[in-house]
C-alpha cells in the first residue's frame, strides 16, 4: 500500500510515465488505484515526432503492469516521510 498511498499524494502534479514499450507520456496525475493503474490528464507524448500515435489523446489510463518508470516531480518527494513509511511497511510484513 506504500506506493498506492504515495501516488495518491501526487494527484494534481505533473509526472512522466515511461512504459515498457519505451513510450513516455507526460501528464497531470488524475488518479491511481491499488494496482497502480494510472490516469493522466493533459497528456503529451515526450517524443511526438517518433510517436505520433497519440496526437488526439488528451486523457489516458495506463495499466500498472506496463509501467517501467514514473519520473516524479522533485518538489513533491519528502524523503524522510518515505524512509519512515518504508520502515513501517517492512516491519508490518
Amino acid at each position: 500500500m506504500l506506493f498506492y498511498s504515495y501516488f495518491k499524494t501526487l494527484v494534481g502534479k505533473e509526472v512522466t510515465v515511461e512504459l515498457k514499450n519505451d513510450l513516455a507520456i507526460t501528464g497531470v496525475l488524475h488518479s491511481v488505484d491499488q494496482y497502480l493503474n494510472i490516469k493522466l490528464t493533459s497528456t503529451r507524448v515526450v517524443d511526438e515526432a517518433k510517436y505520433p500515435h497519440m496526437m488526439s489523446v488528451r486523457n489516458c489510463f495506463i495499466r500498472g503492469s506496463v509501467v517501467r518508470y514514473v519520473h516524479l516531480p522533485p518538489g513533491s518527494v519528502d524523503v524522510e516521510i518515505l524512509h519512515d513509511a518504508t520502515r513501517r511497511e517492512a516491519k508490518g510484513g
Partner: peptide
C-alpha cells in the same frame, strides 16, 4: 531490457517497487 540504475534508495515494498 539491458538497463542499469544507480541511485539513492528512498522507498521500496515487497514487490521491489522503489523510489
Amino acid at each position: 531490457g539491458e538497463r542499469e540504475i544507480r541511485g539513492r534508495l528512498h522507498a521500496y515494498d515487497q514487490h521491489l517497487n522503489m523510489i
